[in-house]
């Protein structure tokens, strides 16, 4: 009932293409107005004008004018506005609690308060330098792969000894080389 009464107080100005709502930021809260405007973005182009500390005019134009009429847009906006007012009021009321919890969490992260589990607070594994032995092992691996790549390439050549698969350009190039 309360929200209906509130909605009635804001009378949208309707044209065939637009709905314009003049909103009192002091009573509604700028965040709630922004939130409700943002929520309309899938259905409407929303523009805001006026004084962010006083009156703001929200103008709504349907993205698909055939599917949604300006009046319906205005009604939906007002419903969202009511919802946003409640959400922002709750968020503001809970702000000190959230700050306290975040502060405690940071203290856990800093080690001022014991961490909940050893795993969560385990120090990061650092990247270490490789030993000479390890480097030698890598070099061995690389030489194995290089020889594998070479044999793959050789096989490719061997599979087409007469150059049948070679492109015209490749044959020309080979011919030029042979000529030289």
């Amino acid at each position: 009932m309360k929200s209906k009464n509130k909605s009635k107080k804001i009378i949208p100005k309707l044209t065939s293409a637009h709905a314009a709502l003049s909103l009192d930021v002091k009573t509604l809260g700028l965040e709630a107005v922004y939130g409700a405007a943002y929520l309309m973005m899938d259905k409407a182009f929303v523009s805001l004008s006026g004084d962010r500390a006083g009156k703001v005019v929200v103008s709504l134009r349907a993205k698909d004018p055939k599917a949604v009429k300006p009046k319906a847009l205005a009604e939906e906006f007002l419903l969202d506005l009511e919802s946003q007012k409640v959400r922002w009021a709750v968020a503001k009321n809970n702000l000190p609690i959230r700050e306290h919890i975040a502060e405690q969490a940071v203290l856990i992260a800093n080690g001022t308060i014991p961490a909940p589990s050893a795993a969560a607070a385990a120090p990061e594994a650092a990247a270490e330098e490789l030993t000479a032995e390890q480097r030698a092992e890598i070099e061995k691996l690389i030489s194995e792969v290089e020889s594998e790549i070479k044999s793959m390439n050789d096989k490719k050549v061997a599979a087409d000894p007469k150059g049948i698969k070679a492109s015209w350009e490749e044959k020309q190039e080979q011919g030029n080389k042979a000529g030289l």
């Binding site: 975040a102 405690q104 969490a105 940071v106 856990i108 992260a109 308060i113 961490a115 909940p116 990061e124």
Partner: peptide
């Protein structure tokens, strides 16, 4: 009946404070 310690532990565990990379 809110458990602030539990909430702080969860905040630590699930927020970027616990992100290791």
């Amino acid at each position: 009946a809110f458990d602030f310690d539990a909430a702080a532990r969860l905040q630590f565990e699930r927020s970027l404070l616990s992100w290791k990379g």
